[in-house]
Design a protein around this nucleic acid. Structure first.
Lengths: 339, 339
DNA sequence: CATCTCTGTGGGAGCGCTCCCAAAGGTGCG
DNA sequence: CGCACCTTTGGGAGCGCTCCCACAGAGATG
């Protein structure tokens, strides 16, 4: 009995033996090398079938120095990401883009409480071939560390400050915000306020920028209140806005959640939407179709973003050293009832 | 220059060398063995620090025969899972439960188009320590294959037929449905219809069961129309219901999405909700708070489900052979305006 | 017919780690 | 002081794979 210990899966060696070839030849067949005779190939393929052979990834990784795994790191600090479908959409884009390749998706949720050190260690070249970074806040050191360690990585969303050399894929946040403001102005609104997102995130900052510059183009005044993308901050912000400028006739909100909060606050204050005040959101989340009134909002191609991130990352992995370009995806306005 | 080839990360051997100990001792320290002298331990720890050593998982897996990775397989056939926050909530529950352990989450989206064979191969003992299965339809062979191969696995949601020996974690779907019906009946409704989910899923079947048995308890007639959890199927189903029984005064929908569709159809038909017809959904999705009128619905602890799945799986991995029990999590009714 | 290709092949070396065995050193007892 | 027994240690073996070198044999060339 030279059978191996308690039913371990078959090894390449066993496949080779059964096919009557050497280990090298078997390996060549498995990896699709062309330098193999028809006969040998068939024999090996047959043996693989018979034995139900599956290559051992660990062994392969050990020698090839890559793992065929890419990590998607979600810095979920606000658990906003989970409240919104945004996250799920990115995952979907990422995973369908990955489905074409042989790479697997490792999902790493970066809970602020769990020790970051371990994540950090895990994100080395030994464990993943590349990293997708989502929703990076302020001056998170992670992107820099990855860049320094030479781990291929792509940012989802433009970083707050362009300190790192990592490429990013982002929506046209400023453009989308401008679109919203233009629509409001075209509709005759003259006192257009905004509720911003967190300014330590690119999305927050750029949506404000788009708002500001669009209004500047019309020589209209700005009215800004800061929030954090959450429904509650929308409510609070709207209240303040109403106090500061009772005559405002439009609010551009940096997220649908905030718009929902604003809608509630406006209703409580007896303002009709859109007659008295127009409201426009950002994200085109599923919920935006069911608010009262339904929400005019800026649509962003979230799923595409995930896919493009994968595309960019794949290029970085396969052609290290090649220059990579940032990607900015177009947004468009979805006009519904609120403005 | 006995430096190794182009800057590979440091190995255990190098750590040992620098610490002035043997490879074995270094390994013992890294893995927290107690059989090490204080001096040796400190020396190794110091060397690890200095070198920035991170153990190579592939090498370790190769010998230990486990990977510290668990896969979450999502059979996303209907892309319903991504439309709803359900999926994101499960992921959150799973990943926070995993945060306590040293295991990583591998997310495998089982697109029906991408070849299933590869997924199947990947889900062997060589690659993952265990598998979490979500949203298994009808008689998917996957659970059986995993069970046969001896890969620890846990089902999220009771399987359609109890053919496999895999344990599951589920919500109390029948109980929740009964709760909804009881509420409707207590509110004076006498013609309570239901829009079911897909009956090849446990959730679909059991919600119908709860509905049926609750009505039976009151000797009230049933009125059933089948759907697939989607908004559109809710719309279509509601229309048919209205044709079949114009005098119906309540609809219990197997999902919030379906309830939203029903709400739209009811409005189109000129029925007032809840005056003429009461509507109750299932899921307590975020959207349910913003429908018109806001939706009474059955809340299910999705996040908890993810966590319990991890718990169960961990037990199976750590104590193979031990008996494992199915888990059924309680649901409760959230009463809003629609019924 | 010798030589020089070229394709196809077998198998040694070695990836970085854990396991385990044997040996070294210390302690306590008779 | 010798022996048994413990703790601590070093390092060989080997996990399953790919890489690569050497070599056999078939054809092409002089």
């Amino acid at each position: 009995m030279n059978r191996r210990s308690p039913n371990r899966p078959p090894t390449l060696e066993e496949v080779a033996l059964r096919a009557g070839v050497g280990r090298g030849t078997a390996s060549r067949v498995i990896n699709g090398s062309l330098q193999v005779s028809e006969a040998a190939r068939n024999a090996v393929l047959q043996a693989v079938q018979d034995l139900g052979y599956v290559p051992n990834r660990a062994a392969r990784s050990l020698v090839t120095q890559h793992t065929d795994v890419v990590a998607l790191v979600v810095s979920e600090s606000e658990d906003r990401l989970f409240g919104e479908p945004f996250f799920a959409q990115v995952v979907r884009g990422v995973s369908s883009a990955l489905a074409g390749t042989s790479r697997q998706l490792l999902l790493a949720v970066d809970h602020r409480d769990s020790d970051r050190q371990r994540l950090n260690d895990y994100l080395s070249k030994q464990h993943v071939d590349g990293v997708l970074l989502l929703s990076i806040h302020g001056d998170d050191p992670l992107p820099g560390q990855l860049a320094a360690r030479g781990v291929p990585a792509v940012l989802g969303g433009r970083p707050h400050s362009a300190v790192t050399s990592l490429p990013f894929v982002d929506m046209d946040n400023a453009g989308g915000a401008a679109l919203a403001v233009e629509h409001l102005v075209a509709g005759g609104r003259r006192c257009v306020a905004t509720l911003t997102g967190p300014l330590d995130m690119g999305a927050g900052r750029l949506r404000l920028e788009g708002y500001t510059s669009a209004l500047a183009g019309h020589a209209l005044p700005t009215l800004v209140e800061h929030g954090d993308f959450s429904e509650n901050s929308g409510r609070v912000g709207a209240r303040r806005l109403l106090e500061r400028a009772p005559d405002l006739d439009a609010i551009f909100c940096a997220s649908d959640q905030m718009a929902i909060g604003a809608l509630a606050e406006l209703a409580a204050a007896g303002r009709r939407v859109p007659e008295d005040v127009a409201v426009v959101g950002f994200d085109d989340s599923p919920t935006s179709r069911h608010t009262t009134p339904s929400l005019t909002t800026v649509h962003q191609p979230v799923e595409d973003m995930g896919a493009r991130m994968v595309q960019t990352l794949s290029r970085m992995i396969e052609h290290p050293g090649d220059p990579v370009e940032d990607v900015v995806l177009p947004t468009h306005l979805v006009v519904r009832r609120s403005g």
